[in-house]
Design a protein around this nucleic acid. Structure first.
Length: 206
DNA sequence: CGCCAGGGCCATA
DNA sequence: TATGGCCATGGC
């Protein structure tokens, strides 16, 4: 929690996920798979402000691929977007209907979809629907090695660690993951060698 | 020019 | 269960 406090006092509340609607979070979560966020923004901009389930399902596959092309992997991602949107349709595209179900049930449904693994599932659960699930990504796994956390080295171990050591608070889970990502981008790249990092006192510098 | 970005799928052993 | 190849664009 001390590590979190340092990050929070440095960066504040980042108010993730940057999106105008829960459905846009879902779309962004697919598009950002192994992809720079700036490329995702270009793809989202191609929708000209209309990123809705109905719009997406009305597009034919080639049109959809053309729109999301800047985000890369557009053949598979177009397929993934249609798949997850049809899943959402089971709930009449209604966020509250999804939220009324148990977290584990929705998580299992998402993981069963083609194109949705642990990280994408948790990103959607937390940032689109507000479920208390901790998101792990490549940055977070590196974070667990870099600082003395003893959180394991695989996705589910790290997730279990954070959830066991933090209060089950959606706002906290939301901002903690965002802070880890931002801090990694700002200070943990090969170029910017930890200069000014608020966690430098803890860093093991592998 | 090469590297890599807020992964996940699939084939192989 | 654990690797490795593959998918693709754009910024640096």
């Amino acid at each position: 929690m001390d590590i979190y406090s340092r990050l929070e006092s440095c960066y504040g509340n980042l108010n993730w996920w940057p999106a105008r609607s829960p459905y846009e979070v879902i779309v962004g979560a697919i598009l950002t798979q192994n992809t720079n966020w700036s490329n995702v923004e270009k793809a989202l901009a191609n929708f000209d402000g209309d990123i809705t389930p109905m719009r997406l399902l009305a597009l034919d596959l080639d049109e959809l691929k053309a729109l999301i092309r800047p985000a890369g992997f557009y053949n598979q991602k177009a397929d993934y977007l249609v798949t997850v949107t049809k899943w959402f349709e089971r709930y009449a595209f209604d966020v509250d209907t999804v939220r009324a179900r148990p977290l584990d049930e929705i998580r299992a449904q998402l993981l069963a979809l083609r194109g949705i693994g642990n990280e994408t599932a948790d990103s959607i659960l937390l940032y689109a629907f507000g479920f208390p699930t901790f998101v792990i990504d490549k940055y977070t796994l590196r974070f667990c090695q870099r600082y003395p956390l003893d959180a394991g080295s695989d996705y589910m171990s790290a997730k279990a660690y954070f959830e066991a050591h933090l209060p089950r608070d959606v706002a906290l889970f939301n901002n903690y993951h965002a802070l880890i990502v931002i801090n990694a981008k700002e200070h943990c790249s090969a170029k910017k060698r930890c200069e000014g990092c608020p966690l430098s006192a803890y860093c093991q510098k592998l």
